[in-house]
């Protein structure tokens, strides 16, 4: 089975789960992103067809929200907080360390599709600054040494 037909099938199932309700578009897109880690083009087109929403409207919503990604992302998503509190506590050094360790810049995914790097402006845990959120786990009071440790652990776990 080709990948495209896989995507279409899964997308149709997700739309069905939401009973094709047009107002559930964002929820549908969230579920698709959960399933594929990003929003594939084929999925967006299928969503439009299955829900009776023009593709242009679906694409408008998908491009509007920062939470949606139209490019494939890595297995682990590293979100570095560069909000005021974290910045003051040295977030830029932590960002630099991640960039050098993973060989990617913010918004990019590394070659083996293991890590994506993203910047966020506050995760509401300023007391823990500098904060890094990896997938759903919060890592507070980040240091250079901790970066290596965490990435090492994730790489081990991924293998």
């Amino acid at each position: 089975m080709s990948k495209v037909s896989d995507i279409k099938l899964k997308t149709k199932q997700i739309v069905k789960k939401h009973k094709g309700d047009k107002s559930a578009l964002i929820a549908v897109l969230q579920d698709i992103q959960e399933a594929f880690n990003y929003l594939p083009k084929e999925a967006l087109i299928t969503v439009g067809d299955a829900m009776g929403i023009p593709t242009s409207r679906v694409y408008e919503v998908a491009t509007f929200y920062n939470a949606f990604s139209l490019n494939p992302r890595g297995e682990h998503i590293v979100k570095i907080c560069v909000g005021t509190a974290c910045h003051v506590r040295g977030a830029s050094a932590i960002l630099d360390k991640f960039e050098r360790t993973l060989f990617i810049k913010p918004g990019e995914t590394n070659q083996d599709q293991k890590f994506s790097l993203e910047l966020v402006n506050c995760v509401g845990a300023c007391a823990l600054g500098p904060v890094v959120v990896i997938d759903t786990e919060y890592h507070g009071q980040m240091t250079m040494a901790k970066v290596d440790k965490i990435i090492g652990k994730l790489k081990e776990g991924a293998q």
């Binding site: 023009p54 242009s56 409207r57 491009t63 509007f64």
Partner: peptide
């Protein structure tokens, strides 16, 4: 495109 023509071929993307 949406209201008169009825095809919704274009949109405003990103933000």
């Amino acid at each position: 495109c949406e209201e008169v023509v009825g095809v919704s071929a274009i949109g405003l993307f990103a933000r």
